[in-house]
Amino acid sequence: MLGAIIGDIVGSVYEFDNIKTKDFPLFREDCRFTDDTVMTIAVRNALRIYDKEKDIQSFQAALIAEMQRLGRKYADRGYGGRFAKWLWMEDPKPYGSYGNGAAMRVSPVGEYASSLEEALKLAKASALVSHDHPEGIKGAQAAAAAVFLARQEGWGKARIKNFIEGEFYRLDFTLAEIRETYTFDVSCQGSVPQALACFFEGESFEDVIRNCISIGGDCDTTAAIAGSIAEGYYGLPEEIVERARTYLGEIEEEM
């Protein structure tokens, strides 16, 4: 989860000011956590309920409650228009979204799951409360599966990539090929494959994050997705964790 939060914080200042290079200060004074962090924490908190009851409906009810509670508490963190309305509904329903919000918040599922099957089941359940379009579910499941597999012994990058390409997305491009032309895209199908590619081409946790910023687009979200996978694969440099924590403030108490 911290890998996702770090990616979100680093990418926050480049989301609407793309730079198309890997040469940049990892943290700037104006960095901040965004909706990616808030909703990731909400998923983690809802999983605590699931851990006690092992019931999908209870998990989804807890997730809705936590997303609304934290979303309302941190209402200025850059939510999409329809999701911002969802956060304040008395009886929120899914609205057919295939936005990348389903994928950017799902990393705690990949960390928590005891099997790939459980990761996919929980990822789908987490998406369905708001992002119930097949592409929204697909994005959440691909991200959660990658997080889960990155943490398993014997699953190198080539094996993980083969699984992702067999089940979810063709990754038949390189970052160099898309860097100049890739633009802002908040759909799962237009950002999750790119986030995955950033992980597969990365050489360290930090390099994965830099890859995401360098291709532009919705880079706080792609960095959150790729960062959560890279955390499981590489671990987290302590100095980066400590720097990121300085941007969290009181929300760290919710983790």
Rank of each mutant, 00 (worst) to 15 (best):
I64N: 04
I229M: 12
G139N: 02
I225G: 00
A224M: 11
G139W: 00
E231P: 04
G99K: 04
E135K: 15
I41K: 02
C188I: 06
I251L: 13
R82M: 14
T21M: 11
E153G: 14
E201W: 12
T246K: 15
Q57C: 12
K157H: 12
Q57E: 15
T222D: 01
E111H: 10
Y79F: 15
C212M: 07
P108H: 10
A103C: 10
K121V: 14
L120P: 03
K138N: 08
D220G: 05
S97L: 09
G249F: 10
K121Q: 15
G11E: 03
Q57F: 13
G7M: 03
P94Y: 11
A150P: 03
K93P: 07
R77E: 02
E135V: 05
L26S: 01
N18Q: 15
S187H: 11
R170T: 08
T40E: 04
E167L: 05
D207I: 11
A103T: 04
S107Q: 06
I41P: 03
C212T: 05
G11H: 02
G139L: 02
A125F: 14
T221K: 00
E29W: 07
D35M: 07
L120G: 04
E135Y: 13
C31V: 10
G154P: 11
E250Y: 06
A223E: 01
R48A: 13
F24G: 08
E66W: 04
F33I: 07
Q68A: 10
A62Q: 10
A145Y: 01
F163V: 05
V192K: 01
G217F: 01
T181S: 15
W155P: 02
E111N: 09
L116D: 06
K157S: 12
V13C: 14
S187P: 10
I251D: 13
N162W: 04
L175Q: 04
R69T: 11
V208D: 03
D35E: 14
R245C: 14
P94E: 12
K93T: 13
I215P: 00
I56F: 05
Y247R: 09
G96S: 11
G217K: 01
G166P: 09
W88Q: 13
